[in-house]
Protein backbone atom coordinates (compact mmCIF):
# COMPACT_ATOMS: atom_id res chain seq x y z
CA UNK A 1 0.00 0.00 0.00
CA UNK A 2 1.31 3.42 -0.86
CA UNK A 3 0.91 5.85 1.98
CA UNK A 4 3.10 8.96 1.88
CA UNK A 5 1.71 10.45 5.07
CA UNK A 6 4.25 11.55 7.63
CA UNK A 7 3.32 12.13 11.31
CA UNK A 8 4.87 15.58 11.79
CA UNK A 9 6.82 18.34 10.10
CA UNK A 10 9.78 17.44 12.34
CA UNK A 11 9.76 13.84 11.06
CA UNK A 12 9.33 15.05 7.49
CA UNK A 13 12.57 17.09 7.46
CA UNK A 14 14.63 14.97 9.89
CA UNK A 15 16.93 13.47 7.23
CA UNK A 16 17.90 16.71 5.46
CA UNK A 17 21.68 16.71 5.82
CA UNK A 18 24.15 19.56 6.08
CA UNK A 19 25.06 20.84 2.61
CA UNK A 20 21.78 19.76 0.99
CA UNK A 21 20.26 21.61 -1.96
CA UNK A 22 16.71 22.55 -0.95
CA UNK A 23 14.00 24.03 -3.14
CA UNK A 24 11.42 26.05 -1.22
CA UNK A 25 8.07 26.72 -2.92
CA UNK A 26 6.41 30.11 -2.87
CA UNK A 27 6.55 33.53 -4.50
CA UNK A 28 7.13 36.05 -1.77
CA UNK A 29 4.83 35.05 1.07
CA UNK A 30 2.29 33.26 -1.11
CA UNK A 31 2.82 29.50 -1.09
CA UNK A 32 5.68 29.63 1.39
CA UNK A 33 5.70 26.41 3.49
CA UNK A 34 6.29 28.19 6.79
CA UNK A 35 5.81 25.17 9.08
CA UNK A 36 8.26 23.01 7.10
CA UNK A 37 10.83 25.83 7.02
CA UNK A 38 10.50 26.34 10.77
CA UNK A 39 10.92 22.57 11.26
CA UNK A 40 14.12 22.80 9.22
CA UNK A 41 15.31 25.61 11.50
CA UNK A 42 14.62 23.38 14.54
CA UNK A 43 16.38 20.47 12.79
CA UNK A 44 19.45 22.66 12.29
CA UNK A 45 20.99 21.47 9.02
CA UNK A 46 23.59 23.98 7.81
CA UNK A 47 25.50 24.82 4.65
CA UNK A 48 22.29 24.61 2.65
CA UNK A 49 21.84 25.85 -0.89
CA UNK A 50 18.29 27.18 -1.13
CA UNK A 51 16.35 27.74 -4.35
CA UNK A 52 13.39 30.14 -4.14
CA UNK A 53 12.24 33.12 -6.20
CA UNK A 54 13.08 35.48 -3.32
CA UNK A 55 14.97 35.48 -0.03
CA UNK A 56 12.15 35.75 2.49
CA UNK A 57 10.61 38.63 4.40
CA UNK A 58 10.81 39.89 7.94
CA UNK A 59 12.32 37.40 10.39
CA UNK A 60 10.15 34.36 9.81
CA UNK A 61 10.14 31.49 7.31
CA UNK A 62 12.89 31.59 4.69
CA UNK A 63 14.33 34.84 6.07
CA UNK A 64 14.62 33.18 9.50
CA UNK A 65 16.35 30.12 7.99
CA UNK A 66 18.87 32.47 6.34
CA UNK A 67 19.16 34.60 9.47
CA UNK A 68 19.89 31.47 11.52
CA UNK A 69 23.05 30.96 9.47
CA UNK A 70 21.88 27.71 7.85
CA UNK A 71 22.07 28.88 4.24
CA UNK A 72 25.39 29.31 2.46
CA UNK A 73 23.99 30.03 -0.99
CA UNK A 74 20.73 31.39 -2.46
CA UNK A 75 19.63 30.78 -6.03
CA UNK A 76 16.83 33.23 -6.85
CA UNK A 77 15.54 35.86 -9.28
CA UNK A 78 14.72 38.71 -6.91
CA UNK A 79 16.65 38.75 -3.63
CA UNK A 80 15.34 42.04 -2.30
CA UNK A 81 11.90 43.36 -1.51
CA UNK A 82 10.44 45.99 0.75
CA UNK A 83 10.39 43.64 3.76
CA UNK A 84 13.57 41.70 3.01
CA UNK A 85 16.28 42.67 5.50
CA UNK A 86 18.08 39.50 6.56
CA UNK A 87 19.52 38.46 3.20
CA UNK A 88 20.69 41.93 2.08
CA UNK A 89 22.63 42.38 5.34
CA UNK A 90 24.39 38.98 5.14
CA UNK A 91 25.06 39.46 1.43
CA UNK A 92 26.71 42.84 1.97
CA UNK A 93 28.82 41.26 4.75
CA UNK A 94 29.94 38.56 2.31
CA UNK A 95 28.41 35.81 4.45
CA UNK A 96 26.10 34.34 1.82
CA UNK A 97 26.56 33.52 -1.85
CA UNK A 98 24.03 34.59 -4.50
CA UNK A 99 23.27 33.12 -7.91
CA UNK A 100 20.89 35.45 -9.71
CA UNK A 101 18.68 33.73 -12.32
CA UNK A 102 15.92 35.43 -14.36
CA UNK A 103 12.52 34.25 -13.15
CA UNK A 104 11.47 32.41 -16.31
CA UNK A 105 14.87 30.77 -16.65
CA UNK A 106 14.70 29.72 -13.00
CA UNK A 107 11.29 28.13 -13.56
CA UNK A 108 12.38 26.39 -16.74
CA UNK A 109 15.66 25.12 -15.25
CA UNK A 110 13.64 23.53 -12.45
CA UNK A 111 11.07 22.12 -14.88
CA UNK A 112 13.87 20.76 -17.11
CA UNK A 113 15.41 18.91 -14.15
CA UNK A 114 12.07 17.30 -13.39
CA UNK A 115 11.56 16.45 -17.05
CA UNK A 116 15.00 14.86 -17.55
CA UNK A 117 16.26 17.56 -19.91
CA UNK A 118 19.83 18.53 -18.97
CA UNK A 119 19.85 21.91 -20.74
CA UNK A 120 17.82 24.12 -23.03
CA UNK A 121 18.23 27.31 -25.05
CA UNK A 122 16.41 30.54 -24.20
CA UNK A 123 16.51 34.10 -25.59
CA UNK A 124 16.42 35.45 -22.02
CA UNK A 125 19.67 37.28 -21.04
CA UNK A 126 21.10 37.36 -24.58
CA UNK A 127 23.04 40.61 -24.89
CA UNK A 128 23.29 41.10 -21.11
CA UNK A 129 25.95 40.45 -18.48
CA UNK A 130 23.93 37.48 -17.20
CA UNK A 131 24.83 35.62 -20.41
CA UNK A 132 28.58 36.15 -19.90
CA UNK A 133 30.51 32.92 -20.27
CA UNK A 134 27.49 30.92 -21.40
CA UNK A 135 27.17 28.96 -24.63
CA UNK A 136 25.29 30.82 -27.38
CA UNK A 137 23.68 29.22 -30.39
CA UNK A 138 21.63 30.40 -33.38
CA UNK A 139 18.23 28.93 -34.20
CA UNK A 140 16.24 30.43 -37.09
CA UNK A 141 18.55 33.48 -37.18
CA UNK A 142 18.08 34.36 -33.53
CA UNK A 143 20.63 33.94 -30.74
CA UNK A 144 19.86 31.87 -27.66
CA UNK A 145 21.77 31.09 -24.49
CA UNK A 146 22.13 27.60 -23.07
CA UNK A 147 20.92 27.07 -19.50
CA UNK A 148 21.37 23.88 -17.48
CA UNK A 149 18.76 22.05 -15.46
CA UNK A 150 18.50 22.82 -11.76
CA UNK A 151 18.05 19.85 -9.43
CA UNK A 152 17.62 19.60 -5.69
CA UNK A 153 17.94 16.99 -2.98
CA UNK A 154 14.77 18.12 -1.25
CA UNK A 155 11.76 20.33 -1.99
CA UNK A 156 9.61 21.92 0.72
CA UNK A 157 6.13 22.58 -0.64
CA UNK A 158 2.80 23.97 0.60
CA UNK A 159 -0.36 22.52 -0.90
CA UNK A 160 -4.05 23.12 -0.33
CA UNK A 161 -5.44 19.59 -0.67
CA UNK A 162 -3.48 16.33 -0.81
CA UNK A 163 -4.23 12.64 -0.63
CA UNK A 164 -2.02 9.83 0.78
CA UNK A 165 -0.80 9.04 -2.75
CA UNK A 166 0.66 12.55 -3.01
CA UNK A 167 -1.79 14.05 -5.47
CA UNK A 168 -1.91 17.80 -4.87
CA UNK A 169 -3.92 20.92 -5.50
CA UNK A 170 -2.84 24.47 -4.70
CA UNK A 171 -4.53 27.74 -3.77
CA UNK A 172 -4.65 30.50 -6.40
CA UNK A 173 -1.29 32.23 -6.94
CA UNK A 174 0.25 30.15 -4.13
CA UNK A 175 0.88 27.54 -6.84
CA UNK A 176 3.75 29.41 -8.57
CA UNK A 177 6.99 27.34 -8.56
CA UNK A 178 5.67 24.47 -6.41
CA UNK A 179 4.53 21.97 -9.09
CA UNK A 180 7.92 22.38 -10.83
CA UNK A 181 9.90 21.89 -7.63
CA UNK A 182 7.91 18.74 -6.83
CA UNK A 183 9.24 17.30 -10.10
CA UNK A 184 12.85 18.42 -9.68
CA UNK A 185 13.76 17.26 -6.17
CA UNK A 186 14.93 13.77 -5.20
CA UNK A 187 12.70 13.95 -2.12
CA UNK A 188 9.62 16.17 -2.19
CA UNK A 189 8.10 17.02 1.18
CA UNK A 190 4.63 18.59 1.19
CA UNK A 191 2.64 20.26 3.94
CA UNK A 192 -1.04 20.32 3.12
CA UNK A 193 -3.92 22.23 4.62
CA UNK A 194 -6.30 19.38 3.94
CA UNK A 195 -5.56 15.66 3.72
CA UNK A 196 -8.30 13.67 2.02
CA UNK A 197 -8.71 9.99 1.14
CA UNK A 198 -7.49 8.87 -2.28
CA UNK A 199 -10.29 9.43 -4.75
CA UNK A 200 -11.62 12.56 -3.11
CA UNK A 201 -9.66 14.81 -5.46
CA UNK A 202 -11.26 14.62 -8.91
CA UNK A 203 -8.50 13.24 -11.19
CA UNK A 204 -9.31 16.10 -13.58
CA UNK A 205 -8.44 18.57 -10.83
CA UNK A 206 -5.10 17.12 -9.73
CA UNK A 207 -2.41 19.74 -10.37
CA UNK A 208 0.63 17.74 -9.23
CA UNK A 209 0.30 13.97 -9.68
CA UNK A 210 1.46 11.93 -6.69
CA UNK A 211 4.39 10.38 -8.56
CA UNK A 212 6.30 13.64 -7.91
CA UNK A 213 5.65 13.64 -4.16
CA UNK A 214 7.32 11.61 -1.40
CA UNK A 215 6.03 12.83 1.95
CA UNK A 216 2.78 14.48 3.05
CA UNK A 217 2.22 16.20 6.39
CA UNK A 218 -1.11 17.68 7.32
CA UNK A 219 -0.82 21.23 8.66
CA UNK A 220 -4.48 22.06 8.89
CA UNK A 221 -4.11 25.65 10.09
CA UNK A 222 -1.00 26.94 8.35
CA UNK A 223 0.25 30.35 9.37
CA UNK A 224 0.78 32.82 6.54
CA UNK A 225 4.05 34.72 6.31
CA UNK A 226 2.16 38.00 5.80
CA UNK A 227 0.23 37.41 9.03
CA UNK A 228 3.39 36.66 11.03
CA UNK A 229 5.15 39.75 9.67
CA UNK A 230 2.13 41.98 10.37
CA UNK A 231 2.24 40.69 13.96
CA UNK A 232 5.95 41.50 14.22
CA UNK A 233 6.88 37.86 14.87
CA UNK A 234 10.29 36.28 14.52
CA UNK A 235 11.48 32.65 14.57
CA UNK A 236 12.71 30.79 16.52
Amino acid sequence: MIDKRCPSVADAVADIPDGAVVMVGGFGASGSPIELIHALIDHGATGLTVINNNTGNGEVGLAALIGNGQVSKMICSFPRSSQSRVFPKLYREGKIELEIVPQGTLAERIRAAGAGIPAFYTPTTVGTILADGKELRQFDDRTYVMEPWLKADFALIKSEIADPLGNLTFNKTARNFSPLMCMAATTTIVQTKQLVPAGDIDPEHVITPGIFVDRIVEVSRPVHEDTLIAAGRSYP
Binding site: P79, P88, R92, I100, Q103, G104, T128
Partner: peptide, 16 residues
Amino acid sequence: ADAIPAVGGAMDLVQG
Protein backbone atom coordinates in the same frame (compact mmCIF):
# COMPACT_ATOMS: atom_id res chain seq x y z
CA ALA B 1 29.43 47.53 -6.31
CA ASP B 2 27.14 47.52 -3.27
CA ALA B 3 23.92 46.98 -5.25
CA ILE B 4 22.13 43.68 -4.77
CA PRO B 5 21.20 42.53 -8.27
CA ALA B 6 17.52 41.62 -8.65
CA VAL B 7 16.26 40.80 -12.13
CA GLY B 8 12.89 39.11 -11.56
CA GLY B 9 11.09 38.44 -14.83
CA ALA B 10 12.21 41.55 -16.74
CA MET B 11 14.74 39.79 -19.00
CA ASP B 12 12.19 37.13 -19.94
CA LEU B 13 9.51 39.74 -20.66
CA VAL B 14 11.65 41.90 -22.94
CA GLN B 15 12.76 38.92 -25.03
CA GLY B 16 9.38 37.25 -25.29
